[in-house]
Amino acid sequence: MTVKILYFASLKEALGCTEESFVLPSGVSTVGELRSFLADRGEKWKALGEGRNVRAARNQRMAAPADPVLPGDEIAFFPPVTGG
């Protein structure tokens, strides 16, 4: 029941975390629920909280909060992209 979570850019710096292996707790089955759970882990994790401009990807595709999270998934959180 483990997922890989990646963080990028300013969010990575705010959290001091690039990547983690995360055991899905019961009650966390969507990208939005995962984000809320992570945001409640402590002060610096509020960078993932509601109202913060954070985007998510599931298995390297842009994801919406309602998208499911399944064991083995690669989930990423990051600020809006600024390439080009």
């Binding site: 300013s10 809006p80 992209v81 600024t82 390439g83």
Partner: peptide, 26 residues
């Protein structure tokens, strides 16, 4: 392609300025 790349391709710019390093806002 450029318009979609700007909003969908996962790149982020960190600029070096006299005020310090600064992530570019979307």
């Amino acid at each position: 392609i450029m318009d979609y790349l700007k909003t969908r391709a996962p790149f982020w710019k960190l600029e070096e300025t006299p005020e310090g390093a600064c992530w570019v806002d979307a």
